[in-house]
Computed example of a mutant assay.
Amino acid sequence: MPVLSISADQPIQISPNSLWLELCGWKVSAGFPSPAADHTQKRVDLNDHLIRNKEATFLFRVRGDSMTGAGIYEGDTLVVDRSIEAKHNSIVLAILNDEFTVKRLYRRGGVFKLVAENPIYPPRVIKPEEELTIWGVVTFNLHKLC
Rank of each mutant, 00 (worst) to 15 (best):
Phe112Arg: 10
Lys42His: 13
Asn141Pro: 01
Ser90Pro: 03
Lys87His: 13
Thr139Cys: 10
Pro33Ile: 07
Gly69Glu: 10
Phe112Gly: 00
Ile72Ser: 02
Arg43Met: 12
Arg43Val: 07
Lys144Thr: 10
Glu130Lys: 06
Pro119Val: 08
Thr77Gly: 02
Thr57Pro: 02
Gly136Phe: 00
Thr77Gln: 08
Ala94His: 01
Val62Gly: 01
Gly75Tyr: 04
Gln13Pro: 11
Asp38Ile: 01
Lys144Arg: 15
Glu99Met: 11
Phe58Tyr: 15
Lys113Gly: 00
Thr68Phe: 00
Thr101Ile: 06
Cys146Thr: 09
Val80Pro: 00
Tyr121Leu: 07
Val125Cys: 05
Asn89Met: 11
Glu117Asp: 15
Lys127Ser: 12
Met1Thr: 12
Gly136Thr: 01
Gly25Asn: 07
Pro123Lys: 07
Leu93Lys: 02
Asp45Phe: 05
Val80Gly: 01
Arg108Phe: 11
Leu78Val: 06
Arg107Lys: 14
Leu132Ala: 09
Val138Gln: 02
Pro122Ile: 06
Val111Lys: 13
Leu19Gly: 01
Ser5Lys: 14
Glu99Leu: 08
Val102Arg: 01
Gly75Glu: 12
Val28Glu: 10
Phe100Trp: 04
Arg43Ala: 08
Asn17Arg: 14
Val92Ala: 04
Ala37Arg: 12
Thr68Lys: 08
Pro119Ile: 08
Leu46Ser: 02
Pro33Gly: 09
Asp38Ser: 14
Ile72His: 02
Pro123Phe: 06
Met67Pro: 00
Met67Glu: 05
Leu132Arg: 03
Lys113Ala: 09
Arg108Trp: 10
